[in-house]
Design a protein around this nucleic acid. Structure first.
Lengths: 231, 231
DNA sequence: ACCTGAACACCGTTCAAGT
DNA sequence: ACCTGAACACCGTTCAAGT
């Protein structure tokens, strides 16, 4: 037995591979997948790669850039083919947005960073391309499609950020319960509208709400004229 | 001159006031206001209050609870009266959502935590109450109003999170520019839809987009039937 | 009951020095 | 050019000890 203690968390690897941006991002994906984004720190990542944190800065500018790279990689898992059986553009678009949401769902906390630092990678472009095409097929004008895709992606991202945080983080779940309780016990005299809408406010499965939100947004996009841009 | 060095950042106050939850939250609001949410740490707050971080835990469970308390305080600044001149429910609702967005705008990074940890305080309830009432007046069913308010608040919160991060954080602004550049240089052969929608995709003022997004959402809410809850 | 000092277990990032 | 040890300047949270 050597006197030097080897960090227990490191499974033995055949050999220490050379550092490279690709290898770093892959390792980062692994940590995000298995331990969550909040554990994906420069120090933790360096430990996984058998080096010191300073070494990573040769390939990654900072933590935000690391998160962006991980997000871009994950967007590759979004299924753009849509529902193959459906010829209906709406059902195909729904399937794509659902797949996008599920991908963000699977990696908690990443959706939050997607809201702030929008991805601009190849996979994000593919997603936008596909959504634009489907909305156009649905009869949206150029302006409606362009701004509508923005709304749809933002809505899906926000839903994933909210929902997945709730499922993973006990504190966030407590917050949600507190909100439900606050709505539930709001006095009928001080908050008549809340009382009147009560079963509906907290009702519905997440799936029902997601589907309705999608349909409402798509209907609104198609029926609301956008200001036409100048030449 | 005393030998003991007084922290330079502390402006001299008449006397050290007794700790209390209210006083702590007020000091926290001050830091969030002047230095941003990311500077609002337990240690920084303790320093501002002339004590050690451990003392705060008597009144505040953890950092998340602190942020939630600050957010709840800020929601008190939302103008619920709406546009007094307008008798139109839609314009009033727009004014309320706009005010909500502007409040979140003024305190960068707070919108992000609002997405994850929904506030459940008195000010949040007032906002929901008002929005429900206005949507009902617009002809929404109970289910449409209940789920619609959720969508409207989520959309406004996400917009604020996105936009304010972009304005405050140079790194987030860079990300945005990178996204714009990626869209702009997307090849017409590999991404025909993006190329075809190009002026619109990055066009429009934030105000135009916000207004259109609001109208699209409201129109969708009113024209999309929601599943009726059981008794 | 309230408050505190000190400690534990972490962070991101930089930089001079090595190879 | 790439990699590193060590340091700087921070974090949140706990806990035993004080008042």
């Amino acid at each position: 037995m050597a006197a030097r203690k080897v960090p227990t968390s490191r499974r033995d690897r055949p050999a220490k591979p050379a550092l490279s941006r690709q290898w770093i991002v892959e390792a980062a994906l692994g940590i995000a997948r298995s331990e969550g984004l909040e554990k994906l720190t420069m120090r933790r990542l360096a430990q996984e790669l058998d080096t010191g944190p300073a070494s990573l800065y040769v390939y990654v500018a900072n933590t935000a850039a690391l998160h962006a790279a991980v997000l871009d990689g994950l967007l590759g898992e979004v299924d753009l083919s849509g529902d193959e059986g459906a010829t209906d553009w709406r059902e195909q678009l729904f399937a794509v947005m659902r797949s996008y949401t599920l991908v963000l769902f699977a990696y908690p906390q990443l959706a939050r960073s997607a809201l702030v630092a929008r991805p601009g990678g190849a996979n994000y472009l593919r997603l936008v391309e596909r959504a634009l095409d489907l909305l156009s097929r649905g009869g949206a004008t150029r302006e409606q499609a362009a701004w509508g895709v923005d709304q749809l992606l933002q809505s899906a991202t926000a839903t994933a950020a909210e929902q997945s945080a709730r499922e993973q983080d006990p504190a966030a779940a407590d917050d949600w319960n507190a909100t439900v309780h606050a709505l539930d016990t709001a006095s009928a005299t001080t908050h008549p509208a809340i009382a009147a809408h009560m079963p509906a406010l907290i009702g519905g499965t997440p799936e029902e709400r997601f589907r309705w939100g999608f349909d409402a947004l798509v209907n609104g996009i198609l029926h609301t004229p956008a200001p036409v841009a100048e030449e």
